[in-house]
Computed example of a mutant assay.
Amino acid sequence: MTTMEALQLMLTDMLGPNGPMIAAGVMIAFFGLAFIPMILSRRDDPIEKLKRQQAGGSKRDGKKEQLRRKSANAKLDKYKAFLEPQNAEELSSVRLKLMQAGYPSRDAVRAFHLAQMVLGIGGLVLGVTYFILVKQTDASTTKDMLMWTLGPGAAGYMLPKYWVTRRVESRKEEITAGFPDSLDMMLVCVEAGQSLDQSIVRVASELRASYPALSQEFQIVAHEMKAGKDKAQVLGDMGERCGVQDVSSFVTVLIQSATFGTSIADALRVYAGEMRDKRVMRAEEAANKLPTKMTLATMMLTVPPLLIILVSPSIIGITSFGAQ
């Protein structure tokens, strides 16, 4: 008898048939109640406390300060020690992935981990409830209990990560599809006499309906340039946020053009032509893959009916001959 079986037998003898589930519920409740006081008893950061004291005064001043600070949800900021990775590299990695998924808010990392925690606990509670009310029988084993209780909790915990990953992939595909058109529009604007900043603003407004993700990136670049941020750094941040090789190469071309003093219009013309050719090559590659992908479906849908048509008369004839 293994340790788990002995423990399950002991709990069954002490608490009845639902002994293991009662023990699991008590442990979850105990850890939850132990976790809440730790959060509530967390001390404020002295620097944050000093900032609040310096920003104190009348209620009107407090409201103005709150309006100026758009960083945040105060409730999430209170629990940031539990909703943010303590490792700087891990925090930077999660923040970059969320930015690539289209969530540039400063509270995105906290909201992501909060969603993981809430959905994980919710899935665990639903799994326990479902197992007790529906699936539990006298023949249920410890393996069944763990599968039906821990499975929904793990699925709920992984759901935000799956959603963010899918968002990153779909956003990269959208940016890749719309980038050649944006370069053509930017080339037209530059050749018409507009500066690079003005052309970026115009392209962002024109792409809002067809490629909203790419339009959002150009809008961020335009706002950062208006705020006085260094142009090379702004473009580099755009390439990092998009996570697309074409955009990173385009940023490198613009930075080199500005560094060496060459014409931006010439650089855009050459690079826009390369992007158009690359889009045609991607379309041809997808078209060449199509026959291979259709082979299996074609065989599954055509071979069985063909065999039925060809072999059925022979089978019927043999059966009739054997019956005679």
Rank of each mutant, 00 (worst) to 15 (best):
T2K: 04
A6V: 11
M10T: 02
M10V: 05
L11M: 06
T12I: 12
D13Q: 12
M14Q: 05
L15A: 07
N18Y: 08
P20L: 02
M21P: 02
F30M: 14
F30D: 10
A34G: 12
F35I: 14
I36Y: 08
M38E: 07
M38F: 09
R42F: 13
P46C: 04
K51M: 12
R52H: 13
Q54W: 05
A55T: 04
K59R: 15
E65Y: 12
Q66H: 13
K70P: 05
S71Q: 07
A72Q: 14
A74C: 09
A81Y: 11
A81H: 11
N87C: 07
L91D: 04
S93D: 15
L96K: 14
L96I: 12
P104K: 02
S105N: 11
D107T: 06
A111Y: 11
A111P: 02
F112P: 00
L114I: 05
L114Y: 00
M117Q: 07
V118S: 06
G122I: 06
L124M: 05
V128M: 15
Y130D: 06
Y130M: 14
F131Q: 01
L133V: 13
K135C: 07
S140H: 01
P152K: 01
P152A: 01
A155N: 01
K161C: 08
K172M: 13
I175R: 05
G178N: 03
D181Y: 10
L183R: 02
L187A: 08
V188E: 07
V188D: 06
E191V: 14
D197C: 11
V203H: 03
S205C: 07
L207I: 02
R208S: 15
R208A: 15
R208W: 02
P212N: 00
A213F: 09
Q216R: 14
F218A: 03
A222L: 05
E224T: 03
M225T: 06
M225E: 02
A227K: 05
D230Y: 09
D230A: 08
Q233V: 06
E240P: 09
S248R: 12
F250E: 00
V251W: 01
V253D: 01
T262D: 08
S263T: 12
I264Q: 08
A267K: 03
Y271R: 14
G273H: 06
D277P: 07
A286Q: 10
N288F: 13
P291G: 04
T292M: 13
M294E: 02
L301Y: 00
L301P: 00
V303A: 10
P305R: 06
L306F: 10
L307M: 07
I309Q: 10
L310N: 04
S314G: 15
A323S: 13
A323W: 08
